[in-house]
Every structure is written in structure tokens, then in C-alpha cells.
Design a protein around this nucleic acid. Structure first.
Length: 415
DNA sequence: TCTGGGGTCCTAGGACCC
DNA sequence: TCTGGGGTCCTAGGACCC
């Protein structure tokens, strides 16, 4: 029995959400940036901006040169997540097998709903319509339909905006004829080069290549590509509950390049706090910590290690990160970016009890999260983060910093 | 190639165990 | 201390993705 898989891909997502929310942006070239500075980069652009040559990852200054009339906006992740939740709840009306792939993409397994591609096309049309009516007319999506997850995404990737396209293993060779190798999910220029070395120049070359040879030369990644283009399912649709996150982390490119350790530590604390909050929201604990920083003039330090016990509170994470940072940092070098993430995650098992020393700290961390949820980000925070608010307030990700902090903050930190 | 910030999966090689 | 062969865990890093 063949499966019926849909891949939904929102068009120019962040820019479309902004156009939906702000009518004065509609029909105009809009660029959504990581942050508004000449060196900031465009992370999404509207259809109008794309037509004028604006591409993702352009720097702000270059985008302005190419298209002086472009309207630039700083991104607001929370806003986009809210819209995503609405869209995904529409998808959930058709099947419980919905896999959120990214903030603007999802897979649907309709196998239990219908066996016919023609029915799937009707569902796809209805989904497009409902998103426009229930979420917003500026939110358009393209939908790929096939028998495997990879083929559904492949056909959606090459589809025009707002299209519904179907591909089956039978019709695939014809479609491959008009595609480049790098149109395929999983092939970028490096993999393309390696495939070329084997005499593979088209997707049909790859499809017809002896599987044993490709496995021998390119290993598993090569086999996966071969199986995918041949319509063999490698990994079906998995629901959110079936996918436990593997890592949670945050990184930050510093707006000021200097050697000031206190400044660096305050950024480090902020990253640990953001990471810790998400860890607690997900009700997970971590066994490994990874910390990375790079220097302005090249090079950097990457360290990943198993910690004694588990990580759950912000201070658990910060204490470990702090030790590595102070031990390994070259004090004369200016730092460009810092990243923190936790891995080796597992569900939090114990009930939190305020009278247990370790668990008590976890309970305090959760109480602080609750206060911040209710009154705004960083209403209550750790002492290390003080002094950062002024520099951080106008930065992306930190924009929601609340200027007024209660006086009890420092006391709470040292409980 | 990098620019931003968030991820996944896979592999190599060393340490350590029986 | 070294001999063999098998295994796991840990850390580092590459190659992709949005």
C-alpha cells in the first residue's frame, strides 16, 4: 500500500506575516533582518523584494544598494511562532500525523485519511483556502504531494508560489529531467562536486547509479540520496511527540568587539538563561553542555562535555560554561560570537520539591520563569545579567528586555 | 566565503573496559 | 608491560537543513 504524504511550505514566511500584520507593507518590497545594522543580514524577503533581486542572507547595506526602496524590519520570532501555531492547528484537522519540520514547513501523512492522490489534492486546496481565510489572505503556501516524505518536499521545493504539485516514483524521472542536482533536498554544492566525481551529473544519473558503488564511496549519506530519488521511504512522518529534541541552545554575535571579560560573561549568562528556560519549558534535563566562541580575527574554542549530574537551572548551565570560558579564553583576543547549547536530553522525572537542596534550586528557577512569563522577559533575572540591558535592549532577540527590574533580583540569585 | 541564529545526523579516533 | 579482539563511551568536527 502506498502512503500519501503532503509537504506544506509557506511562501516568504516572515515577510508575509509582517505584510499581514501591517497593511502598509503589502505589495511592497520588504526585508526581514536579523537586526537593523549595515552588517545585519536579510533572513526573509517578500515576493516583491525577491522580484527586485533581494536574496536571503544578503547584508542590509547590499540590499539597500540593489533596492533603495526596500523596507527593512527586525524579525520578531514570537510573532511568527504564534501564526505557525494557528496554521498547524488547521493541518491537525486532517490527520494526527503532522510533523512540524520548521517554523514554516510541515509534513502530513494522509495515508489513514485517503488512498487516492486526487483526494489529497482536494485536501491541499482546502488547506490553502483555510489558511487564507482563517489566518490571513497574505499567507500563502505551496504544497507538494507524493508517496514519500522526501519526494513531497522535493516537488514542493521546486514548485511555484501558491502551487499544488504531485510527483510519484513513476513520474519522477520526467520531473528530474528539468532539475539540477542541487534542487534536491540534501545536495548542496559540496555534495554535487562529490557526485560529479562519480560521473553523476543529473538526478536521473543518481537514480540509475549502482547502489553498491554509491554506498561504498559516499557511505550512508550517499545511500540515502539514492533511495530518496528512487522513491524509497527512509524516514516516514513523525509527530512532535515522537521527536524528542536532541539539543537546545542559543548563540549571539556580539555588537561590540572587545576583550572585556565582564561583558562577555553577562552575554554568556543571558545565553544560559535563554537555554535554561527552554529546557524547563520542555520539562527536560541535559547531561552534556557545549560551549563555543569565536575570535574577531579568526579561530575559536569549541568544547562539548558530559557534566557531573544533570543540567536544569540557569545556574547549573552557567557554572559549567563559566569554568570553561575562563579557563580557555585568550584574554587579549576580541570575541565575535558566543554559543551555548545543551544536549543528551531526557525527560525530567522527579517531582520538584522546595525542601530538597538541588530540587529546591530547580523550583526557584521555575518560579522565576513563571514571573517572567507573566510580567515579561527578564522582569526577574540573575545578577550576572545586570548592566547588559542597556546594550541589549535594541538588539534582536533581546528586544523584549524590560528596563525596570524589581529590587529583589540580586538577593534571589544568591539563595 | 561570510554575513544570523536555530537545528539534525553521522563519523573518526582516543580512552577505557573485559 | 604486552599480547588479541571485541565492545562502549566520549569528544571533536564535518555536512547538511531552514
Amino acid at each position: 500500500m502506498q502512503n500519501i504524504i503532503l509537504h506544506i511550505d509557506m511562501n516568504s514566511y516572515f515577510a508575509s506575516v509582517e505584510q499581514q500584520a501591517n497593511p502598509h507593507l503589502r505589495g511592497k518590497p520588504v526585508g526581514v533582518c536579523a537586526y537593523l545594522s549595515p552588517n545585519g543580514c536579510i533572513i526573509a524577503s517578500s515576493m516583491e523584494a525577491k522580484k527586485l533581486g533581494i536574496k536571503t542572507a544578503f547584508r542590509v547595506k547590499d540590499a539597500k544598494k540593489i533596492c533603495p526602496e526596500i523596507i527593512l524590519i527586525e524579525n520578531e520570532p514570537a510573532k511568527y511562532r504564534t501564526v505557525t501555531t494557528k496554521i498547524f492547528s488547521i493541518l491537525a484537522d486532517y490527520t494526527d500525523r503532522v510533523e512540524p519540520y520548521s517554523i514554516d514547513e510541515a509534513f502530513l501523512d494522509l495515508t489513514g485519511y485517503t488512498k487516492k492522490i486526487s483526494n489529497a489534492v482536494c485536501v491541499a486546496k482546502e488547506i490553502q483556502q483555510r489558511i487564507k481565510v482563517e489566518v490571513g489572505e497574505w499567507l500563502k503556501c505551496k504544497i507538494g504531494i507524493s508517496t514519500t516524505r522526501w519526494l513531497a518536499k522535493f516537488i514542493a521545493d521546486i514548485a511555484k508560489a501558491d502551487a499544488i504539485d504531485v510527483i510519484t516514483p513513476k513520474t519522477a524521472p520526467k520531473v528530474y529531467e528539468r532539475c539540477k542536482l542541487t534542487d534536491a533536498w540534501g545536495i548542496n554544492y559540496r555534495m554535487q562536486w562529490r557526485l560529479n566525481q562519480l560521473g553523476i551529473y543529473t538526478l536521473n544519473d543518481l537514480k540509475n547509479y549502482p547502489v553498491a558503488n554509491i554506498l561504498a564511496v559516499l557511505g550512508k549519506p550517499g545511500y540515502f540520496l539514492w533511495a530518496n530519488v528512487n522513491g524509497i521511504e527512509i524516514q516516514g512522518v513523525r509527530t512532535q511527540e515522537e521527536i524528542l529534541p536532541k539539543s537546545i541552545g542559543h548563540s549571539y554575535c556580539l555588537p561590540k568587539h572587545n576583550t572585556d571579560t565582564n561583558y562577555h560573561l553577562s552575554i554568556l549568562m543571558k545565553l544560559c538563561e535563554k537555554t535554561g528556560r527552554r529546557l524547563r519549558e520542555s520539562k527536560l534535563e541535559a547531561k552534556n553542555l557545549s560551549i563555543f566562541w569565536s575570535y574577531v580575527h579568526g579561530g575559536g574554542v569549541y568544547k562539548i562535555f558530559k557534566v557531573p549530574g544533570t543540567l536544569f537551572t540557569t545556574m547549573d548551565i552557567y557554572n559549567q560554561a563559566y569554568n570553561v570560558f575562563l579557563n580557555k579564553k585568550m584574554s587579549a583576543f576580541k570575541i565575535r560570537m558566543i554559543a551555548v547549547s545543551v544536549t543528551n536530553l531526557s525527560p525530567l522525572t522527579k517531582q520538584l520539591n522546595l525542601f530538597d537542596d538541588v530540587l529546591g534550586r530547580k523550583k526557584i528557577a521555575q518560579a522565576m520563569d513563571n514571573i517572567n512569563d507573566k510580567f515579561g522577559e527578564y522582569t526577574i533575572s540573575y545578577g550576572q545579567m545586570h548592566g547588559l540591558a542597556d546594550q541589549a535592549r535594541d538588539r534582536v532577540g533581546f528586544r523584549k528586555t524590560v528596563g525596570v527590574k524589581p529590587k529583589l533580583t540580586k538577593e534571589l540569585l544568591y539563595l
